[in-house]
Design a protein around this nucleic acid. Sequence first.
DNA 1: TCCAATTAAGTTGCGTACGATTTAATTTAC
DNA 2: GTAAATTAAATCGTACGCAACTTAATTGGA
Lengths: 146, 146
Amino acid sequence: MKDSDMTLANQLCFSMYHASRLFIKFYQQALQPFGLTYPQYLVLLALWEEDRQPLHALGEQLDFGSNTLTPLLKRMENKGWLTRELASSDHRQLIIQLTETGRTSKTEIFKSIRVCVRQQDIDPADYQGMLAQNHALIDTLEKMLN
Amino acid sequence: MKDSDMTLANQLCFSMYHASRLFIKFYQQALQPFGLTYPQYLVLLALWEEDRQPLHALGEQLDFGSNTLTPLLKRMENKGWLTRELASSDHRQLIIQLTETGRTSKTEIFKSIRVCVRQQDIDPADYQGMLAQNHALIDTLEKMLN
DNA sequence: TCCAATTAAGTTGCGTACGATTTAATTTAC
DNA sequence: GTAAATTAAATCGTACGCAACTTAATTGGA
C-alpha cells in the first residue's frame, strides 16, 4: 500500500464504521419490540446455534471480552432471556443457557427481522460479495492486531 | 430479498460490525501516541478539510448528533485540539475551530497512520470496490431509516 | 408585530466497547 | 505435593452512540 492510499484506508474505515452503525440501527427497529439491543441479539444467535456455552466461547465468536459480556449477560439474565451458572467441572467457567422464553422467542424475533430485511431489496449476490470481502479484511486486520 | 436470505443479512451486518471494530482498533494504535480516539480523529479530518465549521455541520458529515458531539468536542477542547465559540451571526450555532496545535499536528498524525496502514498490504483496487459497495449499502440503509 | 414553528446545542440516562487490573480456580512444571 | 504459570470472570474507569427531552435563539406567517 502506497502513501497516497492512506486516504483510501481512511475512507474505507469510515464507510465501514458508518455502514455498521446504520445497519445496527436498522436491526434495532426490528428488535425494539422485544427490548433487545443488537449485541444482545448476537448472543441469542450464538445460543440458538449452540446452547449452554461458557462465557469465553461466546466472547470468541463475537470478539467480546468478559468486560463487555459480563454486564450484558447480567442484563439479559434479568430480563429472562438466559441463565448464568458456574460449570460444575470447572468453577472458573460460567455456562450461559437459554431460558424457555429465550428458546421459543426465536420464531417471533426472526419474523420481526424478516419483515424489516425483506424491504431492503438488495441483490443477494452483492451481499455474498461484500461478505467475502469483509471476511478477507477481517482476516488481514486480525493478523495485524496479533 | 427472500426469507432465506435473512441469514445472509445477519452475517453481513455482523461482519460489518466486526470489521469496523477491528479497523478502528487498528487506527487507535496509530492515534494512541496523540491521546486521540477514532471519533476524535474523524473530527480532525473534517476540520483539516474545512476549518471553522458549526457543530451541526460536523454532525452531518460524521452522522453524529449533538448528544455525541458536545461532550466529544469538550474533551478535544480541554486537550487543546480546538476551540468552541458561539457564532456572532447566530447565537444558536457553535463554531468549531482548530488551534495552532490542531492545525500543525496533521503532518505528524498522518505520518503515524501511514506507518500502520502501509503494513496492511491490500490491493487498492479491492479497497475501491469495497468502498463503492459500502456507499451503496449506506444509501440503501439511509433511505430505509428515513 | 408577535407568536408559533423551526433550528441548534445541550442534558439525561442507558448500553455498549475496551484497556487495565483484580480475584479466583485450575494446570504445569519441578 | 506445591508453588508458579495460566486461564476465566469480574471490576473499574473512560469514551462513545443514541433515544428522548430541554433550553434557547431565530425565522416566518397572520
